[in-house]
Design a protein around this nucleic acid. Structure first.
Length: 271
DNA sequence: CAGAATACCTGCGGGC
DNA sequence: TGCCCGCAGGTATTCT
């Protein structure tokens, strides 16, 4: 479900309710996520204060005095704030109850998400250590991509979805960015020109910023922390539009599998 | 070593 | 109505 814009939207939504707030207790209903939720997490977090929270790639981090909570939403995860206790549904796996009576609820039907605890520098955790550059930073540029793509024969789409290169770009935004930049998804990464990379870096930033501004993309069930859908869905030009006309030239969009992921593109506009 | 396949899970929509 | 299949926003792990 969530790519960078959806995670960012989620973070912004929950931040005002829980930053600097102290945890009263934690309820774990199902420990079976991507990795087991630490068995003693309720003891660790009791009376801990969330000093700060931020995003790294698609991870959300909550810092406390003794360590950091690492959360990943996987494909179907969601975080939201409840202002009063409410009956837990089937996939509501974790509640963090704060002294201010707000409740942070982690829901994840597919359980591909993660809820972990790390002491020390969270950025040295195995999951975060090798993450590449943040796309919404100045150093993310055509030059950076050109350098990283040297000797990489893989398709450019696979390359920009590699989080060791750049974090946060998933299937939707990869496909949209390639269309916006008129780049053929199967083009070998090491064959793009600096001009192409500059253009791609530019449209990636533009699309991610636009999506964040609109509250992310809702395909069927993404809701942000306020329970609102994301309004970027109606900006999608190619994702989910296989066999429909290209918005630029009218020819029918094609669809192929690339690394098991559906890849929609315009054969005429993307060369 | 790179790159490709596999695995983890539930829910939904389409075809029969 | 119900069953089976394929598909879904991710990514660590295993394989070749």
């Amino acid at each position: 479900m969530p790519e960078l814009p959806e995670v960012e939207t989620t973070l912004r939504g929950i931040l005002p309710s829980i930053k600097q707030q102290t945890i009263a207790h934690v309820v774990v209903r199902d420990y079976r996520l991507r990795w087991p939720v630490p068995a003693n997490i309720h003891l660790i977090l009791r009376n801990a204060t969330i000093d700060d929270l931020w995003r790294r790639g698609k991870y959300v981090l909550f810092k406390t005095a003794s360590g950091t909570i690492i959360i990943h939403l996987g494909m179907s995860g969601r975080l939201r704030i409840l202002t009063e206790p409410s009956k837990a549904n089937k996939h509501d796996h974790i509640d963090i109850v704060f002294h201010n009576e707000k409740i942070l609820r982690f829901t994840d039907p597919r359980r591909f998400g993660a809820f972990l605890w790390v002491e020390g520098d969270p950025h040295q955790h195995a999951l975060l250590k090798h993450l590449g550059i943040e796309p919404l930073t100045k150093n993310f540029s055509g030059k950076y991509l050109l350098e990283r793509a040297r000797n990489k024969k893989m398709p450019v789409k696979t390359f920009i979805m590699d989080h060791k290169v750049v974090t946060g770009i998933g299937n939707i935004y990869a496909v949209e960015a390639l269309f916006a930049a008129s780049v053929y998804p199967m083009q070998p990464a090491n064959s793009l020109s600096l001009t192409q990379w500059n253009n791609l870096a530019k449209v990636i930033k533009k699309i991610l910023r636009s999506a964040i501004q609109r509250g992310g993309t809702t395909l069927k069930d993404f809701l942000n922390s306020d329970g609102k859908p994301g309004y970027f869905s109606n900006q999608l030009k190619v994702y989910g539009r296989a066999n429909l006309p290209c918005v630029k030239c009218g020819s029918l969009l094609k669809s192929v599998k690339l690394g098991q992921r559906s890849t929609v593109y315009c054969a005429k506009c993307q060369k």
